[in-house]
Deep mutational scan, measured.
Amino acid sequence: MSIQHFRVALIPFFAAFCLPVFAHPETLVKVKDAEDQLGARVGYIELDLNSGKILESFRPEERFPMMSTFKVLLCGAVLSRVDAGQEQLGRRIHYSQNDLVEYSPVTEKHLTDGMTVRELCSAAITMSDNTAANLLLTTIGGPKELTAFLHNMGDHVTRLDRWEPELNEAIPNDERDTTMPAAMATTLRKLLTGELLTLASRQQLIDWMEADKVAGPLLRSALPAGWFIADKSGAGERGSRGIIAALGPDGKPSRIVVIYTTGSQATMDERNRQIAEIGASLIKHW
């Protein structure tokens, strides 16, 4: 067993022997301040990774656009098919120029040779490549099948209805392509620590998230040296922004954090800054 596999296998073990965790309302004060600064709703939840206990939450059962955070769930569904012998990570998928959609920095470079399922998941999570996500959605049967996968996990809230990039439209009061912070946090925890996926697939999923290259201005910008984070960000229309993450000190994750916002007129930089400040408060009061 590799060191990384050992780390993920012992996530519940280490967490069980940690000192009790206590909620700190100071972080919620910052979440509410972010709402004021952005002029928009902000949803927040913080779960203990081992027990699933909610440590703090704000608007945990209000719907927010998922945006690209759905790509972690998508690759979880792909990995479940791999575990069941219905898919192979090494299978190569070929596609054409007509398949390319807006923001496809990886797939646009491989029109000639195609990409493997493993490479597509890596591109979808680490670079948020939209064509990679659409190609992977095709392998599982489309958005409705991802929703069905989530329902089978016990998540009857999260739903995907459309493809990239239309799913980022974020129309107010439109339930399409949305989740709730509580539902997303619980589902992410199941994917990373539950028995739904094999140990190898859980490790692969967290490795992809740990290698995320496009979430630097968010929670990662607030992390002290030595902290662990595996995350996936999302951005959408109407001032929408979000991030889902597993993080913790001492090089291992111990909490799940989900943050979503929508309806702001603020710039992307300002949305990023507010999420980073929430992260800084979380870490300060850990």
Rank of each mutant, 00 (worst) to 15 (best):
P105A: 05
P172F: 09
A16K: 06
V72G: 03
I3F: 11
A148S: 15
I93H: 05
I140V: 09
G141H: 07
T69F: 01
L137W: 03
N50Y: 13
W163Q: 09
R241S: 06
P217D: 14
N152V: 10
R176W: 07
D129K: 00
I243T: 04
I244G: 02
I283W: 07
V72P: 10
E35F: 02
L150N: 05
K32G: 09
S201T: 08
Y260S: 02
R91A: 07
R81I: 06
E145M: 12
V257A: 06
I278G: 00
Q274E: 14
L196A: 15
G236F: 01
G234E: 01
I229R: 01
P143S: 06
R189P: 02
L55G: 07
K109Q: 14
R189G: 12
S281K: 14
L100D: 02
K109T: 12
T193G: 15
L19G: 14
A235E: 03
N272H: 04
G216Y: 08
M67E: 04
A230M: 07
L111D: 07
V31A: 08
Q88H: 15
I283Y: 15
Y95W: 10
L282S: 06
I171L: 15
Q274L: 15
L28N: 07
F58Y: 15
E87A: 07
V257R: 00
E145Q: 14
I206F: 13
R118P: 04
H110Q: 09
L197T: 05
T126W: 04
E62Q: 08
I275G: 01
P249H: 07
A16E: 05
K252T: 12
M1S: 01
D174Q: 06
R273D: 10
E166I: 13
G242A: 10
T147P: 03
T179R: 00
Y95M: 07
L191D: 00
L136N: 01
I244N: 02
T139S: 15
E61Q: 14
L197G: 04
V78W: 03
N272S: 05
K213C: 12
L111I: 13
H151L: 14
Q37E: 14
L38I: 10
V117C: 04
T126C: 11
P249K: 15
V82Q: 06
G194W: 08
A23P: 08
A211S: 13
L136Y: 00
P172Q: 12
S264P: 03
L79E: 02
G251W: 07
L73I: 15
V106Q: 12
E175R: 12
L10P: 08
A215K: 05
T179I: 01
P60E: 15
L199T: 10
L150Y: 08
F228V: 07
L137T: 07
P172W: 09
I171F: 13
H156C: 14
H285F: 15
T116W: 02
T27L: 08
M1C: 01
Q4W: 08
D174M: 04
A225G: 13
V214P: 05
K213T: 08
